[in-house]
């Protein structure tokens, strides 16, 4: 991702979803919006290497009711979830090591006081859930396709029965 002269345009799902929601191809059902305050984990690949931080916020704003409580620091300055760069993929033996290295992440999450954490990256999603479990925190990470699939308006012609 992120090359010059790429033969075909490549998109991160967030950028794609942003397009769908902002052009109105997907409508959000007001009654289904996610309740409660929500915080956002800015994934390195999406924010630092793709600059899509505002798109994530647009999507979260569109799909969630509660206020967005930002982690400090946020956007480009957010800490890595400790699952990227192969951090998750190095496997189960390193899980403890990885969670210990993510203490700042846990502190950030505690400081926001949120139970909903939007983690729009597979690595972040797995890693945040591990961190929450390791530090006995309440809450859960939410993937963007999960939020979107739950809150979108399903037109009549798609409904079964």
């Amino acid at each position: 991702m992120g090359w010059k002269d790429s033969p075909i345009e490549t998109l991160h799902p967030i950028e794609f979803y942003y397009e769908l929601v902002s052009t109105g191809r997907i409508k959000i059902d007001k009654n289904k919006k996610i309740k409660g305050p929500i915080t956002i984990q800015d994934p390195c690949n999406l924010v630092r290497l793709r600059g899509a931080g505002e798109k994530v916020r647009y999507l979260v704003n569109a799909t969630c009711e509660g206020p967005i409580i930002e982690m400090q620091p946020n956007r480009e300055h957010n800490f890595c979830c400790n699952g990227g760069g192969g951090g998750n993929a190095i496997g189960p033996p390193w899980k403890r090591n990885r969670c210990e290295g993510a203490r700042v992440k846990a502190e950030q999450i505690i400081a926001t006081g949120c139970h909903n954490i939007c983690a729009p990256c597979h690595n972040c999603y797995t890693s945040i859930n591990d961190v929450l479990k390791f530090y006995n925190l309440e809450g859960h990470a939410m993937f963007m396709d999960e939020i979107l699939a739950e809150t979108m308006e399903v037109p009549e012609e798609f409904k079964v029965g």
Partner: peptide, 13 residues
């Protein structure tokens, strides 16, 4: 390099 760094490029910033 594998288990204590995520190559997240925050240090470059």
């Amino acid at each position: 390099v594998f288990c204590e760094c995520n190559l997240c490029r925050r240090c470059s910033m």
